[in-house]
Design a protein around this nucleic acid. Structure first.
Lengths: 133, 133
DNA sequence: CGTTACATTTACGTTAACGTCAAGCACTCT
DNA sequence: AGAGTGCTTGACGTTAACGTAAATGTAACG
């Protein structure tokens, strides 16, 4: 049961489809990350809105702030964005990528250190327990 | 000009040495992450305090919350000579380690995805620039 | 002794990304 | 008509990790 090209979703359907709350969707709209159409007063999310939301959620997984994401969306949306804007977004991505790599490397080091630490603690525990017999 | 074993630092010296504000150091103390000795009312940071601060800052770089760090510090400080305490710290460390590995893996995935994305954007930029001649 | 330069505690302010009511339309079913 | 459900817009609450300001203390300098 996949979503058709033309089908539009209610806010609740969006919540179910993307595991976000209605508050979140309205919040993103207030922040101008989304702009669903209206049927009377109700929001209707088109295919484009769904694509944007997916990009937003992916951006969040990358650790971008919503403000960063708003700017990055211009990168995906290369319609109507001038070259300077696009270049800036590209740089933003490069910076973030470098940060992520650095963080990953530090994390790897920390993992190793913690493993060593735990090895020691584990051995200490084992000998304590052995002595307790 | 390195710091000797016995030398103790004022709060201002700590700020300069570790690039943190005095507010931060007092905040960490309030959160029981640090406990400098006093000379009258003034704080004096010993070598141990400096070691703890380094661990705190490293933890932060890894993206841990101060509360997480407080618990991790107890593990590095395996002074809790009683077995139950030690075992609890050990388990805590194991959990943390698992979290860190999961985080590292997610980060690796995100890095790859972002790299792909940037490759596309970079190519788009290049062709825009080529067309601009 | 006064001033300058830091130090202290206390307490309210800030930002991000939502959560959590509250009050009120608009339908639909009965 | 009444009840129920879902949606709407406010608007205040929350958490983390400090920032910032006010009022006060204290040590050294000249």
């Amino acid at each position: 049961m996949s979503l058709s090209e033309t089908e539009t979703l209610s806010i609740r359907q969006m919540c179910d489809a993307y595991q976000v709350t209605a508050r979140t969707l309205r919040f993103y709209e207030a922040k101008e990350l989304l702009s669903p159409i209206r049927a009377g007063s109700r929001r209707l999310y088109t295919k484009q809105d769904r694509a944007r939301l997916q990009l937003i959620l992916r951006g969040k997984r990358f650790g971008f702030s919503l403000e960063d994401i708003r700017q990055l969306l211009d990168m995906y949306n290369r319609n109507g964005s001038n070259q300077a804007q696009l270049a800036r977004s590209f740089d933003l991505g490069q910076d973030r990528l470098a940060q992520m790599k650095a963080q990953r490397d530090e994390l790897s080091i920390a993992i190793t250190e913690l493993e060593v630490e735990l090895q020691g603690a584990g051995a200490a525990l084992a000998s304590l327990r052995a002595a307790a017999e």
